[in-house]
Design a protein around this nucleic acid. Structure first.
Length: 350
DNA sequence: GAGTAGACTTGGAAGAATTTTT
DNA sequence: AAAAATTCTTCCAAGTCTACTC
């Protein structure tokens, strides 16, 4: 009884001192939103620090650039031996990056290859700004492959610095911020108001996917992937055939109407056209499904959806385009994000 | 400061439940 | 109604970061 009562009371947040459901989550995203206001200053700052005379500051500035641009994790130092040899930004070693002055037509390319959290491989080639490239050369000079790239840097030092720049700011906030802002931008760029619901959902998934790629959320290819892809392709082929048949059906009906000019034949033309339209829609839907599936082969969307994307962005998008929220969030997710569902209007901006 | 205990968040996969296909 | 496929839930390890000690 007591439990339920507390829960209900907590739900609407009308009682001071009683945290509403999801308040922690809400706070997390509010911190990330505040970063939006100062991120330009911070970027200007670390650009300046690339040129600092203090090695420590230079390293901090380059690390921060990676955390911001590539959404790398902080990378606390961890006890050796027992745990797997995984790293994050601050714990990167010389052996984890390779520098290329030119590569594939790009300048100042850094090639990352290391194991991150849960031993998920991070592999990426990124063109960086020239001062960063030069700093990295400096940091790597006279070091063994197994030496720390940022030997002067700790996560504590980095976070202390961030705390000074903005209240509540830590390294991981950049992940939240960049994930959410990317979703918002991608949704804006990809959503076509003319599309039907399936098409819009594909756009949503693509936006979600852009975030998952940024955050390096990978999954192993599902065992049934190839098989179910085949099955889907067969369905598409079958549907194509049906569409062709329906096209002929329309033509035939039209010819007949020309001959006879009677009302019955006219109605038949309409009927055939309707059928064709329905089949074409079904085909389009299947094609969308296939694209989505293929693009999602090795990408896990769940983690970003659950931990990085401000749900209010999604809620606003759904309201704006008339997409039922259940198409995106299942029951548990709707519960988790209940606060956002009644908080955000269609004009919410992250 | 340096070190570390512990609260809290984030992670993919395995197993369970549900939906779709046959 | 069984089988297959998909989606959801649960699990707990692996991270992040603060707070506290020395």
């Amino acid at each position: 009884w007591c439990k339920g009562w507390n829960k209900d009371r907590a739900r609407d947040g009308k009682y001071p001192g009683v945290p509403f459901q999801g308040e922690k989550d809400w706070q997390k995203y509010e911190v990330a939103r505040r970063l939006k206001d100062v991120v330009h200053t911070i970027r200007a700052q670390y650009r300046k620090d690339w040129k600092s005379k203090e090695l420590k500051k230079q390293q901090r500035a380059v690390a921060l650039y990676f955390i911001d641009k590539l959404a790398l994790r902080a990378g606390n130092e961890k006890e050796e031996g027992e745990t797997a040899d995984t790293v994050g930004c601050c714990s990167l070693r010389v052996e984890h990056i390779q520098l290329h002055r030119r590569l594939d037509g790009q300048e100042h390319v850094v090639e990352f290859d290391f194991l991150g959290k849960d031993s998920i491989r991070y592999y990426n080639k990124v063109s960086v700004e020239k001062p960063v490239f030069e700093n990295l050369q400096l940091f790597m000079k006279n070091k063994d492959p197994t030496d720390d790239l940022f030997d002067q840097l700790t996560t504590t030092f980095l976070n202390k610095h961030l705390q000074r720049l903005m209240d509540g700011l830590t390294a991981k906030v950049f992940r939240t911020y960049n994930a959410s802002i990317t979703l918002q931008e991608q949704l804006k760029a990809l959503t076509n108001p003319e599309d039907n619901v399936a098409g819009k959902l594909l756009s949503y998934n693509r936006a979600n996917r852009a975030v998952a790629i940024l955050c390096n959320h990978q999954r192993s290819v599902p065992k049934t992937f190839a098989r179910s892809m085949e099955v889907l392709q067969e369905k598409i082929d079958a549907k194509k055939k049906q569409v062709e048949e329906a096209q002929e059906g329309v033509k035939k009906a039209e010819d007949e109407f020309k001959e006879t000019k009677d009302a019955k034949a006219e109605a038949n033309v309409e009927k055939k056209k309707k059928l064709l339209k329905r089949l074409e829609e079904q085909l389009a839907k299947l094609n969308v499904q296939a694209t989505d599936k293929e693009e999602n082969k090795q990408i896990a969307l769940g983690t970003s959806k659950l931990n990085y994307l401000d749900p209010r962005i999604t809620v606003a998008w759904c309201k704006k385009f008339g997409i039922p929220i259940e198409k995106i969030y299942n029951k548990t997710q709707r519960e988790k994000f209940a606060w956002a569902i009644d908080m955000a209007g269609e004009d919410f901006e992250f």
